[in-house]
Design a protein around this nucleic acid. Sequence first.
DNA 1: ATAGGGTTAG
Length: 660
Amino acid sequence: MEKREVDQEEELAATCLCAPAIALNLSATFPVIKACAGLGALEDGRHVHKQLIQSGLESDVFVCNSLVDMYAKCGSIEDAWSVFNKMPSQDVVTWTVIILGHVKCGQGQKALELFRQMQQEGVQPDSVTFVGVLNACASMVAIEEGRCVHQQIIQRGLESNVFVASSLVDMYAKCGSIEEAQRVFYKMPSRNVVSWTAMILGHCGSIEDAWRVFNKMPSRNVVTWNAMVLGHVKCGQGQKALELFRQMQQEDVVTWTAMILGHVKCGEGQKALELFRQMQQEGVQPDPVTFVGVLNACASLIALEEGRCVHQQIVEYGWDSDVFVVNSLVDMYAKCGSIEDAWRVFNRMPSQDVVTWNAILGGCAMHGHGKEALKHFERMCEEGVQPDDITFICLLSACSHAGLVDEGLRCFALMSTVYGISTKLEHYTCMVDLLGRAGHLQEAENMVKAMPCKPQVAALMALLGACRIHGNMEMAERVAKQILEMEPENATGYVLLSNIYAAAGNRHLCENVERQRKEKGAKKEPGRTWIEVNNEVHMFVVEDRDHPQMIEIHAELQRLSGLMRDAGYVPCTEFVLDDVEEEEKLFHLCHHSEKLAIAFGLINTAPGTPLRIRKNLRICKDCHTSTKFISKIVGRAIMVRDANRFHHFEDGVCSCMDYW
DNA sequence: ATAGGGTTAG
């Protein structure tokens, strides 16, 4: 929606709301309800509704239809239904808006049921109803249902309606049937940008075909260009997407947002924030979706201060009641380690959904607060929020990071029996990680074998990582063999195995694996770590030797290692071979970007300042290797573990405890 | 009323 239009609507809505004593009339009411719907202003909408009741206008069928529509668009489907049910009779518009409402909130199945129900009650669908129902089919990739609807459309002679036909093209394209999409497309008496765009998107599997359709278009607008940019992002051709983006004559908010989100997904949070700044410099107004992308970028960088500024802007723009934005805010604060801020946003929400709770639990997991995660999970259930499969992934990984084996096993069991959630491969993978990290290698391997289908590479990687932590070379070779067969071009398996050989002092085998890796063309991606120090985000790359403070950083690392050894920390595996030169040892000392970042953080911040560290998990595939040195960082404390104990270091003070 | 970008995990 154009900014100016919003302003006018806001003005109208405001005028109406400021004059509660004046009886409303019908013609003035429609634009106000429409304004509330367009702005997603649920509370204002409720207010208008109340006034309508006072004015005795709530029985008018047109008014009721617009109220149902407003509530559905504002995301309160319950209110929409209560208006719907109070109506003496519903017409095609009433049914259509409630169907569209369900499609919008992702309940495609329910939308199709309603479509059947309305016909049973003798109400005939029109072109708008068909558009909504086709949308539902597309969102569920339900091609059979889509074909039935198509039949009905032909029977009613609506196939040449440009809206209906465009939706048909879109539905077939999204369901993966390019042939049927083409058949409808070429039969259309006239085509508009929408039908062309739907065709382009249908060809995104093959970017060459998409280009062919694109080049045939009689005229192109921003949306079509966006589709092409997005097509490249989806095909993993980020560089090409960027080139295309730079070539565009005019970009809109969607183009910028797609670029921002694309960069976040590729682990380029810093670039995403740069794009956001550029976008604003060029005078493009961000919308809620943009903010979701920007908050994701802040979360991925643990950039708390940046995140706070973005939050401020969100409030200024008035997008702080958008459910996606608010959930992203909770997630950002939780990931940045500021659980207090996360709760503050959480408590201000009128109601929290499973995504909000998952964001909180995920934040706990990331920061090693296993016990807290379990406590919050209990509260979540008490509040009547149904946990889903992602909830259990968060819980299990929280248990894994905190070494809570029994609790993890209990959650795993309760998941299907009590909560009726089917165990997915990801849950098994979490369990392999949990058991393996805790040293129950045999149980972890049994878990891999018990998986109902072929294990994910991630599960085997978790097991191999555990073999490295606990120095089991025999199992490591067995697991690595499977990994290298499944993904010979993935460098992580080779790196882990060669680390295990190095730790055992077997230089020959170590070099052998390295040779294999190079033969297969598996490229090691540099591990990267970000740390926020004095409101600035610094990035460290593996084997970085050019940092201006490198001497101090090395000294700090050596001090830490000494401290740990003095406290009885026994490294169970060591990458550094016995016979390497002194200089090479120093090289290994700065091997991990995470170590560099921690040392940098410790020497540049006052005692007591929490360290905010984030590893780029997508790029840094050596996350397993880093767990040996650092188990987790909580505030400023660093936890490491060897075979028997947990060691806890905080500003030069050390405490040890036995575990499992 | 139709087309492009959206929340949580791994």
